[in-house]
Protein backbone atom coordinates (compact mmCIF):
# COMPACT_ATOMS: atom_id res chain seq x y z
CA UNK A 1 0.00 0.00 0.00
CA UNK A 2 2.80 2.38 0.99
CA UNK A 3 4.66 1.40 -2.17
CA UNK A 4 1.61 2.25 -4.29
CA UNK A 5 1.24 5.64 -2.62
CA UNK A 6 4.97 6.31 -3.03
CA UNK A 7 4.83 5.28 -6.69
CA UNK A 8 1.77 7.45 -7.35
CA UNK A 9 3.46 10.40 -5.65
CA UNK A 10 6.65 9.79 -7.65
CA UNK A 11 4.63 9.67 -10.88
CA UNK A 12 2.73 12.85 -10.03
CA UNK A 13 5.93 14.75 -9.17
CA UNK A 14 7.67 13.54 -12.33
CA UNK A 15 4.68 14.51 -14.49
CA UNK A 16 4.45 17.98 -12.88
CA UNK A 17 8.14 18.79 -13.41
CA UNK A 18 8.00 17.43 -16.97
CA UNK A 19 4.88 19.53 -17.70
CA UNK A 20 6.64 22.61 -16.33
CA UNK A 21 9.82 22.00 -18.36
CA UNK A 22 7.95 21.31 -21.62
CA UNK A 23 5.75 24.36 -21.15
CA UNK A 24 8.72 26.66 -20.40
CA UNK A 25 10.72 25.35 -23.36
CA UNK A 26 7.84 25.49 -25.84
CA UNK A 27 7.21 29.11 -24.84
CA UNK A 28 10.87 30.19 -24.71
CA UNK A 29 11.91 28.16 -27.80
CA UNK A 30 15.51 28.47 -26.65
CA UNK A 31 16.75 24.98 -27.35
CA UNK A 32 14.63 22.74 -29.55
CA UNK A 33 14.73 25.06 -32.57
CA UNK A 34 18.53 25.29 -32.32
CA UNK A 35 18.82 21.51 -31.90
CA UNK A 36 16.69 20.86 -34.99
CA UNK A 37 18.52 23.39 -37.16
CA UNK A 38 21.89 22.03 -36.02
CA UNK A 39 20.99 18.42 -36.87
CA UNK A 40 19.67 19.33 -40.32
CA UNK A 41 22.68 21.52 -41.14
CA UNK A 42 25.09 18.81 -40.00
CA UNK A 43 23.42 16.24 -42.27
CA UNK A 44 23.56 18.60 -45.26
CA UNK A 45 27.23 19.52 -44.62
CA UNK A 46 28.27 15.88 -44.23
CA UNK A 47 26.52 15.09 -47.51
CA UNK A 48 28.68 17.69 -49.30
CA UNK A 49 31.87 16.98 -47.32
CA UNK A 50 32.07 13.24 -48.06
CA UNK A 51 32.51 11.77 -51.51
CA UNK A 52 29.46 9.52 -51.27
CA UNK A 53 28.96 6.85 -53.88
CA UNK A 54 26.63 3.88 -54.02
CA UNK A 55 29.34 1.52 -52.74
CA UNK A 56 30.33 3.56 -49.68
CA UNK A 57 27.20 5.49 -48.66
CA UNK A 58 25.93 2.66 -46.40
CA UNK A 59 29.24 2.66 -44.51
CA UNK A 60 29.56 6.45 -44.09
CA UNK A 61 26.01 7.79 -43.77
CA UNK A 62 25.05 6.11 -40.44
CA UNK A 63 28.11 7.75 -38.86
CA UNK A 64 27.01 11.15 -40.15
CA UNK A 65 23.48 10.55 -38.84
CA UNK A 66 24.61 9.68 -35.31
CA UNK A 67 27.18 12.47 -35.15
CA UNK A 68 24.37 14.90 -36.01
CA UNK A 69 22.14 13.32 -33.32
CA UNK A 70 24.85 13.35 -30.66
CA UNK A 71 25.94 16.96 -31.21
CA UNK A 72 22.34 18.19 -31.40
CA UNK A 73 21.59 16.28 -28.19
CA UNK A 74 24.48 17.94 -26.38
CA UNK A 75 22.98 21.34 -27.22
CA UNK A 76 19.75 20.36 -25.49
CA UNK A 77 21.36 18.46 -22.62
CA UNK A 78 23.47 21.50 -21.75
CA UNK A 79 20.30 23.50 -21.11
CA UNK A 80 18.69 20.83 -18.89
CA UNK A 81 19.73 22.51 -15.65
CA UNK A 82 21.43 25.68 -16.95
CA UNK A 83 18.15 27.59 -17.34
CA UNK A 84 17.07 26.65 -13.80
CA UNK A 85 20.46 27.51 -12.33
CA UNK A 86 20.63 30.90 -14.07
CA UNK A 87 17.36 31.93 -12.41
CA UNK A 88 18.11 30.16 -9.12
CA UNK A 89 14.90 28.20 -9.50
CA UNK A 90 16.72 24.87 -9.10
CA UNK A 91 17.36 25.75 -5.45
CA UNK A 92 13.68 26.54 -5.08
CA UNK A 93 12.77 23.17 -6.59
CA UNK A 94 15.22 21.43 -4.23
CA UNK A 95 13.52 23.18 -1.29
CA UNK A 96 10.34 21.25 -2.04
CA UNK A 97 9.82 17.78 -0.53
CA UNK A 98 10.35 16.19 -3.93
CA UNK A 99 12.00 12.83 -4.56
CA UNK A 100 15.30 13.66 -6.29
CA UNK A 101 14.78 10.65 -8.57
CA UNK A 102 11.55 12.31 -9.78
CA UNK A 103 13.56 15.39 -10.79
CA UNK A 104 15.99 13.14 -12.70
CA UNK A 105 13.16 11.18 -14.34
CA UNK A 106 11.39 14.38 -15.44
CA UNK A 107 14.58 15.94 -16.84
CA UNK A 108 15.41 12.68 -18.64
CA UNK A 109 11.92 12.42 -20.15
CA UNK A 110 12.07 16.08 -21.20
CA UNK A 111 15.37 15.47 -22.96
CA UNK A 112 13.96 12.36 -24.64
CA UNK A 113 10.97 14.35 -25.92
CA UNK A 114 13.11 17.11 -27.45
CA UNK A 115 15.85 14.84 -28.83
CA UNK A 116 13.14 12.51 -30.15
CA UNK A 117 11.40 15.39 -31.92
CA UNK A 118 14.66 16.43 -33.56
CA UNK A 119 15.28 12.83 -34.67
CA UNK A 120 11.75 12.56 -36.02
CA UNK A 121 12.37 15.60 -38.24
CA UNK A 122 15.94 14.62 -39.19
CA UNK A 123 15.35 11.00 -40.21
CA UNK A 124 13.18 11.68 -43.31
CA UNK A 125 15.65 14.40 -44.38
CA UNK A 126 18.52 11.93 -43.90
CA UNK A 127 16.71 9.24 -45.90
CA UNK A 128 16.02 11.71 -48.72
CA UNK A 129 19.42 13.38 -49.12
CA UNK A 130 21.47 10.19 -48.63
CA UNK A 131 18.92 8.14 -50.61
CA UNK A 132 18.89 5.31 -48.05
CA UNK A 133 15.98 3.01 -47.03
CA UNK A 134 16.09 3.72 -43.29
CA UNK A 135 12.44 4.64 -42.78
CA UNK A 136 11.43 1.14 -41.74
CA UNK A 137 10.22 -0.30 -38.45
CA UNK A 138 13.76 -1.51 -37.73
CA UNK A 139 15.07 2.02 -37.16
CA UNK A 140 12.70 2.65 -34.20
CA UNK A 141 14.44 0.42 -31.59
CA UNK A 142 17.88 1.61 -32.73
CA UNK A 143 17.01 5.30 -32.38
CA UNK A 144 15.04 4.72 -29.18
CA UNK A 145 17.76 2.74 -27.39
CA UNK A 146 20.57 4.98 -28.67
CA UNK A 147 18.73 8.11 -27.56
CA UNK A 148 17.97 6.69 -24.10
CA UNK A 149 21.68 5.93 -23.63
CA UNK A 150 22.78 9.42 -24.66
CA UNK A 151 20.07 11.17 -22.61
CA UNK A 152 20.48 8.98 -19.49
CA UNK A 153 24.13 9.77 -18.93
CA UNK A 154 23.83 13.24 -20.49
CA UNK A 155 21.14 14.29 -17.98
CA UNK A 156 23.29 13.16 -15.04
CA UNK A 157 26.37 14.98 -16.31
CA UNK A 158 24.34 18.08 -17.18
CA UNK A 159 23.59 18.33 -13.45
CA UNK A 160 27.32 18.00 -12.63
CA UNK A 161 28.45 20.46 -15.31
CA UNK A 162 25.65 22.86 -14.41
CA UNK A 163 27.40 23.70 -11.14
CA UNK A 164 30.52 24.89 -12.97
CA UNK A 165 31.27 28.05 -14.89
CA UNK A 166 32.61 26.14 -17.91
CA UNK A 167 29.50 23.97 -18.27
CA UNK A 168 29.20 24.45 -22.04
CA UNK A 169 32.72 23.04 -22.54
CA UNK A 170 32.68 20.53 -19.71
CA UNK A 171 29.51 18.68 -20.67
CA UNK A 172 30.71 17.29 -24.04
CA UNK A 173 34.11 16.48 -22.52
CA UNK A 174 32.42 14.40 -19.83
CA UNK A 175 29.70 12.82 -21.94
CA UNK A 176 31.38 11.95 -25.25
CA UNK A 177 33.87 9.38 -23.90
CA UNK A 178 31.14 7.60 -21.95
CA UNK A 179 28.65 7.31 -24.80
CA UNK A 180 31.20 5.88 -27.26
CA UNK A 181 29.90 2.28 -26.84
CA UNK A 182 26.29 3.43 -27.40
CA UNK A 183 27.22 5.48 -30.49
CA UNK A 184 29.31 2.63 -31.97
CA UNK A 185 26.45 0.21 -31.34
CA UNK A 186 23.89 2.59 -32.87
CA UNK A 187 26.02 3.29 -35.96
CA UNK A 188 26.69 -0.41 -36.57
CA UNK A 189 23.04 -1.33 -36.00
CA UNK A 190 21.98 1.36 -38.48
CA UNK A 191 24.53 0.03 -41.00
CA UNK A 192 23.10 -3.46 -40.44
CA UNK A 193 19.64 -2.11 -41.22
CA UNK A 194 20.82 -0.61 -44.55
CA UNK A 195 22.98 -3.56 -45.67
CA UNK A 196 22.55 -6.60 -43.38
CA UNK A 197 25.67 -8.67 -42.71
CA UNK A 198 25.60 -12.36 -41.81
CA UNK A 199 27.00 -13.06 -38.34
CA UNK A 200 26.90 -9.42 -37.24
CA UNK A 201 27.09 -8.75 -33.50
CA UNK A 202 23.86 -8.12 -31.54
CA UNK A 203 24.40 -4.36 -31.42
CA UNK A 204 20.94 -3.62 -30.05
CA UNK A 205 21.68 -5.86 -27.08
CA UNK A 206 24.92 -3.95 -26.43
CA UNK A 207 23.11 -0.59 -26.50
CA UNK A 208 20.35 -1.92 -24.22
CA UNK A 209 22.96 -3.20 -21.74
CA UNK A 210 24.65 0.22 -21.61
CA UNK A 211 21.25 1.91 -21.24
CA UNK A 212 20.52 -0.21 -18.17
CA UNK A 213 23.95 0.57 -16.69
CA UNK A 214 23.63 4.32 -17.37
CA UNK A 215 20.09 4.52 -15.98
CA UNK A 216 21.03 2.56 -12.85
CA UNK A 217 24.12 4.67 -12.12
CA UNK A 218 22.21 7.90 -12.74
CA UNK A 219 19.25 6.91 -10.53
CA UNK A 220 21.58 6.03 -7.64
CA UNK A 221 23.93 9.01 -7.87
CA UNK A 222 21.68 11.86 -8.99
CA UNK A 223 20.62 12.94 -5.48
CA UNK A 224 24.29 13.31 -4.44
CA UNK A 225 25.09 15.25 -7.61
CA UNK A 226 22.23 17.72 -7.39
CA UNK A 227 22.49 18.49 -3.67
CA UNK A 228 25.42 20.11 -1.90
Amino acid sequence: MITMITLRRFGAQTASILWKDLRCELRARQVWMAMGMFALLALVIFNFAFDLRVDNVAAVAPGALWIAFVFASILGLGRTFAAEQEHGSLDRLLLCPVDRKAIYAAKLLGNLVFIGAVELISLPVFAAIYNLPVLTGGIIPIVLLGTVGIAAIGTLFAAIAGNTRAREVLLPLLVFPLIVPVVIGAVRATQGLISPLAGDLPWLGLIAAFDVIFLSISAVTFAYVIEE
Binding site: A12, Q13, S16, I17, W19, K20, R23, C24, R27, A28, H87, G88, S89, D91, R92, L93, C96, P97, V98
Partner: peptide
Amino acid sequence: QPHLYEDLSARENLEFFGRMY
Protein backbone atom coordinates in the same frame (compact mmCIF):
# COMPACT_ATOMS: atom_id res chain seq x y z
CA GLN B 1 15.75 36.87 -5.83
CA PRO B 2 12.23 35.63 -6.66
CA HIS B 3 13.33 32.28 -8.16
CA LEU B 4 10.15 31.89 -10.18
CA TYR B 5 9.69 30.43 -13.65
CA GLU B 6 9.54 33.43 -15.96
CA ASP B 7 7.86 31.58 -18.83
CA LEU B 8 5.01 30.38 -16.63
CA SER B 9 2.14 32.62 -15.55
CA ALA B 10 1.67 33.71 -11.94
CA ARG B 11 -1.07 31.10 -11.46
CA GLU B 12 0.94 28.33 -13.16
CA ASN B 13 3.89 29.04 -10.84
CA LEU B 14 1.74 28.73 -7.72
CA GLU B 15 -0.04 25.64 -9.02
CA PHE B 16 3.27 23.99 -9.91
CA PHE B 17 4.74 24.56 -6.46
CA GLY B 18 1.41 23.49 -4.91
CA ARG B 19 1.78 20.15 -6.68
CA MET B 20 5.41 19.91 -5.54
CA TYR B 21 4.27 20.29 -1.91
